Amino acid sequence: MSDFIAEQDRVLLERHGLASYEALWALTLEAVDEPNTERGGWSSVYRLDLGEQAFYLKRQSNHLTRNVLRPFGEPTFAREFRNIQRFKRLGIPSLEAAFFAKRRINTERQAVLVTRALDGWSDLQGLLESWPRLPGVERGEIVTACGKLMRNLHAAGQLHGCFYPKHVFLQRSSGGYAARLIDLEKTRPLLLGERDRLKDLDPFLRRTCAWSDDEVRHFLTAYLPIGTDIERWRLRLDARRRSKEFAVGAC
């Protein structure tokens, strides 16, 4: 895979001398959180402000994911970048990549991924914390936007795999709310029909416990095709919930 630079960001990165892997790898910044060391290597995230445009710079070394096609592993950012580009081709609103490249340096397998910051957008998790104080019309717009986002995702044949409120970002305009997804590392094709769809639906609805029964129904109405038996889906969700142990973070 050759180095990727988004055309809309190329001039800006070049102006700041950051249009290469080497420059981005050497850049000194303060990480926004503690490095992720779960996979034996490390992975860190930094905020990068370049004038009026902000980005998130992600760097990792020997932080690998493995599957049947890649038994020896690859940087997790390589998988995330492919998914970002796939979502773009499929018309699923998500974060945007500005730069991606990977290198093998001696025994290290390194990768750099730069994404555009979603400044001006709010994550659903934060909105849920103030849910009772939001106007009813605004709550309805948010619920509708979330339902349409998941409908768009599944209609394109994709499973997010981690469809949680903290990964849904929303922005209000005169026409209501727009929604988009982040954290695409676990995304895969939706292969098992309703069973796969429930894998996104169930954890999402367990974590939106601030929503009333009417709001859950509103969400399902926005998500499901017109004429679908909503009660059947609610029964399937209830059955799945009863069959699983109480999940961490559920209500």
Score class of each variant (00 low, 15 high):
residue 232 R to H: 15
residue 138 E to M: 15
residue 106 N to A: 14
residue 6 A to Y: 06
residue 145 A to R: 01
residue 110 Q to I: 04
residue 208 T to P: 01
residue 105 I to Q: 15
residue 168 V to R: 00
residue 215 E to T: 05
residue 179 A to V: 05
residue 142 I to E: 08
residue 146 C to S: 14
residue 76 T to L: 13
residue 204 F to L: 07
residue 213 D to G: 13
residue 120 G to P: 02
residue 249 G to A: 08
residue 131 W to P: 07
residue 78 A to H: 09
residue 72 F to W: 14
residue 206 R to K: 08
residue 231 E to F: 09
residue 18 L to F: 02
residue 38 E to K: 03
residue 236 R to C: 08
residue 216 V to C: 10
residue 60 Q to E: 15
residue 203 P to K: 02
residue 247 A to M: 06
residue 228 T to R: 14
residue 7 E to Y: 06
residue 246 F to H: 09
residue 19 A to Q: 05
residue 135 P to D: 13
residue 20 S to L: 05
residue 154 H to Q: 04
residue 20 S to N: 04
residue 114 V to I: 10
residue 127 L to A: 09
residue 160 H to T: 00
residue 124 L to P: 03
residue 158 Q to V: 13
residue 8 Q to W: 06
residue 129 E to Y: 10
residue 118 L to V: 08
residue 182 I to V: 14
residue 141 E to C: 13
residue 4 F to L: 12
residue 104 R to F: 09
residue 190 L to T: 02
residue 114 V to L: 15
residue 181 L to H: 02
residue 206 R to M: 06
residue 95 L to H: 04
residue 104 R to N: 12
residue 27 L to D: 02
residue 247 A to Q: 10
residue 184 L to C: 01
residue 121 W to R: 02
residue 143 V to E: 10
residue 222 A to G: 07
residue 49 D to R: 15
residue 155 A to V: 06
residue 160 H to P: 00
residue 244 K to D: 08
residue 62 N to M: 03
residue 162 C to N: 08
residue 198 L to F: 08
residue 58 K to P: 00
residue 175 G to Q: 12
residue 52 E to L: 11
residue 101 A to V: 08
residue 220 L to T: 01
residue 45 V to S: 01
residue 164 Y to G: 01
residue 98 A to H: 02
residue 11 V to Q: 14
residue 163 F to V: 00
residue 240 R to H: 13
residue 119 D to T: 11
residue 178 A to C: 08
residue 177 Y to N: 08
residue 41 G to A: 04
residue 1 M to V: 10
residue 198 L to M: 14
residue 231 E to W: 11
residue 126 G to Y: 07
residue 187 T to E: 07
residue 141 E to Y: 12
residue 101 A to D: 14
residue 109 R to P: 00
residue 55 F to G: 00
residue 8 Q to A: 14
residue 149 L to Q: 07
residue 55 F to Y: 15
residue 180 R to G: 02
residue 231 E to R: 13
residue 97 A to T: 03
residue 202 D to M: 09
residue 135 P to W: 09
residue 19 A to M: 03
residue 156 A to P: 03
residue 157 G to Q: 05
residue 129 E to F: 12
residue 95 L to Q: 12
residue 180 R to K: 14
residue 162 C to W: 00
residue 222 A to F: 07
residue 2 S to R: 15
residue 146 C to V: 14
residue 235 L to F: 09
residue 64 L to D: 08
residue 110 Q to A: 07
residue 48 L to Y: 00
residue 110 Q to K: 10
residue 21 Y to A: 10
residue 3 D to R: 11
residue 248 V to Y: 09
residue 209 C to S: 11
residue 72 F to E: 11
residue 193 G to V: 04
residue 112 V to S: 03
residue 210 A to C: 12
residue 38 E to D: 14
residue 189 P to Y: 06
residue 115 T to S: 12
residue 225 P to C: 12
residue 130 S to D: 12
residue 5 I to L: 15
residue 76 T to I: 13
residue 65 T to R: 15
residue 115 T to A: 10
residue 118 L to F: 04
residue 129 E to N: 14
residue 170 L to K: 01
residue 88 K to Q: 15
residue 63 H to L: 01
residue 88 K to T: 13
